[in-house]
């Protein structure tokens, strides 16, 4: 069983989104292409995409087919179709995820991205960097940093009304 922490202890997601938008606005042009990583990253990317007035439609990626633990854990049950509604070749791409941890998800996302073409540049935007990297990967835009124990699982949730919040669960 997982135990849930009260959300009051975690930073407010609206404030984090505003912080991220402020960081990105001077750096990102409307011609950039945004890609959200399923599932939390897509929710965050939808917000950033709208607030930054990005012209190209939002892309989404499910990294399940590129995960490095496929051999030991198999495929995830809840798979999504990746959808990149723009040419990747030569574009400035911003990959968006909710939480940056080991870096393995981003490694998988980059591998998938390059199967669509050769981007001119790839940036990474995340809501939370929780440390614990196992690969040489870093984010260009980070709303906040949190220090969490390995057993703790931090993820973004979306309520029925669209409101985003962070949730911390602890593995037994």
């Amino acid at each position: 069983m997982a135990t849930t922490h009260p959300t009051e202890q975690l930073p407010d997601v609206e404030k984090l989104v505003a912080e991220l938008v402020a960081q990105m606005r001077p750096q990102v042009t409307p011609q950039s292409c945004f890609i959200g990583i399923h599932t939390g990253g897509v929710w965050l990317a939808e917000r950033l995409h709208a607030e930054l007035g990005i012209e190209a439609s939002l892309g989404t990626i499910d990294v399940s087919f590129y995960r490095d633990d496929f051999g030991s854990r198999g495929l995830h049950k809840d798979l999504h179709r990746s959808n990149l509604p723009f040419e990747v070749e030569g574009r400035n791409i911003v990959v968006v995820d909710d939480v940056l941890y080991t870096g393995r998800t981003i490694r998988a996302a980059l591998n998938e991205l390059f199967d669509y073409g050769r981007p001119a540049r790839v940036d990474l935007a995340v809501l939370v960097d929780r440390g614990g990297r196992e690969l040489p990967i870093t984010a260009n835009f980070v709303a906040t940093k949190l220090s969490l124990a390995p057993a703790q699982n931090l993820q973004l949730e979306r309520a029925d009304d669209g409101k985003l919040s962070l949730r911390l669960a602890e593995a037994k």
Binding site: F65, Y66, F70, V88, E89, N111, F114, D115, Y116, G117
Partner: peptide, 9 residues
């Protein structure tokens, strides 16, 4: 529909 029609599974 991809440029590289291959997955590493």
């Amino acid at each position: 529909e991809r440029e590289v029609k291959k997955l590493p599974l």
